[in-house]
Structure formats: C-alpha cells, structure tokens
Write a protein that binds this DNA or RNA. Structure first.
Length: 214
DNA sequence: ACATTAATTGTGT
DNA sequence: ACACAATTAATGT
C-alpha cells in the first residue's frame, strides 16, 4: 500500500508488530480532497477511519431548523480516529454527524469486523480507549466554549485552531464559511472580526485572515 | 483595456 | 435580522 512508511512512522509506537501487519493487510487506503464529504448524516458506517495526514472536521446538524445549519464539533488530526464511527459501528447506528475534509487528507479505512477482532490486542484496546478519552475532553471543552464564552472569544479560539492545523497563521477563508462553522450569521462574524482587528489580534484582507501574535 | 457580473465584505436601521 | 452599499475578483468582449 502507498504511504506505508508514513503509517509505520505514526503508529509504530502504538500498535504491536503483528497488529501493524494485520492493519496493512486489511485496511483500505484512501485519499480525500479538501471539502469532500467523508460521512454524512444518517449514513450507515461500515468502516472506521485512521488519519494519516491532513485533518477532518466533524459537524453536528441542527435537528429542528432545517436549512443545513451545522455546528463545528472538533477536528480530527493525524494519528486519530473518529469516536462516533466507533460507537456507530458497534451499535449498528446511523451516523449522527457529518465529516468533511478540512484539507487534502490521507487515511486508512478499517472494516467493522476487524476492529472487533483486534480488541484482543492490547495496543488496539488502548488506542480505542484513548480516543474516547481525548474526544470526551475535547467535547467538554467545546461545550464550555459554546455555553460560557462570548462569541468573540469563541471566534478567536476557532481561528487559532484552524491556524494550528494548517500550520500557517494566514487562513484562506471567508466570513460566510466561518459563520457556518460557528453557527452564526455572516454579519456577526464580520463585525466581530473588525473588533478583533482593531484590537490587533488579527489583520484581514479579502478571502484571508492573518493572525497576529498573541 | 474596458464593461459586466458575481462574490465578498461593510454599514445603517 | 434584514436590506442595501461598497469593494474586489472573475469573466467576457
């Protein structure tokens, strides 16, 4: 499979030799372009993703108000998996979330049966357990931010996260896209950004925002 | 090079 | 929240 060395590099310390071998034999390698939908709402989940490179954003849909309103939950980065895929597979449930590639990404898909088989490996159990742990922490954080933080702080957190993931402090994004991820209106984002700009937190041009040192 | 159009961003109510 | 103005980018002639 392509990207074999890269896979080993990322997961060598995490999985046993035998397990690494099994993964290489059974996983499906897939590349995905930025903005492609990996999993959509109500789709059934037959595979579990292992991210090798790139980032995936996980969104929750607003059930009540149709209109495709979404709220960003968190990002999946390399070395991680999506815990919702775990619970979906195990419970044979349909997807509660939508997963979209934040950038061009490379990943491995693990069939459901295998992920159950591999529970006999300690490395696998630890990996799954840690994934749950990390996600719970991140979700709690996300809830705190939504519930208790003011929108301008939330916006700043969001921008910093994106900058960290893309490895650049200049983000190519429109106000509209931001508002959709944060589940607000575009106008609000524009005004908040203006406020942040006047407080020297960032600088904006058309179609891009440059974060300044904090 | 210019005009037209669409997309993005700014502002006032 | 909405409507509209202003600005910039994209495209055609």
């Amino acid at each position: 499979m392509p990207y074999l060395e890269f896979f080993l590099e990322v997961y060598k310390g995490v999985f046993e030799e035998e397990l690494l071998q099994e993964i290489i034999e059974n996983a499906i390698y897939q590349e995905i372009e930025a903005n492609e939908i990996l999993i959509d709402f109500k789709q059934s989940v037959s595979h579990m993703p292992l991210l090798l490179h790139g980032a995936i954003k996980v969104l929750r849909e607003d059930e009540a108000g149709e209109e495709g309103a979404e709220l960003l939950l968190y990002f999946i980065e390399k070395g991680n998996t999506c815990v919702f895929s775990l619970s979906c597979c195990i419970g044979n449930k349909q997807s509660e979330i939508r997963a979209i590639a934040e950038m061009d990404s490379k990943l491995l898909l693990i069939p459901v049966q295998k992920m159950e088989d591999w529970m006999r490996y300690k490395g696998w159990r630890n990996f799954v357990f840690n994934s749950y742990q990390n996600r719970l922490d991140e979700l709690l954080e996300a809830i705190d931010i939504v519930a208790f933080k003011k929108l301008d702080e939330r916006l700043l957190v969001y921008l910093k996260e994106k900058a960290r993931i893309s490895g650049s402090d200049t983000l190519n994004i429109t106000h509209l896209e931001i508002s959709q991820d944060l589940y607000t209106s575009r106008v609000v984002v524009s005004r908040l950004l203006k406020g942040l700009e006047s407080r020297n937190k960032l600088q904006m041009q058309r179609n891009s925002i440059r974060l300044l040192e904090a």
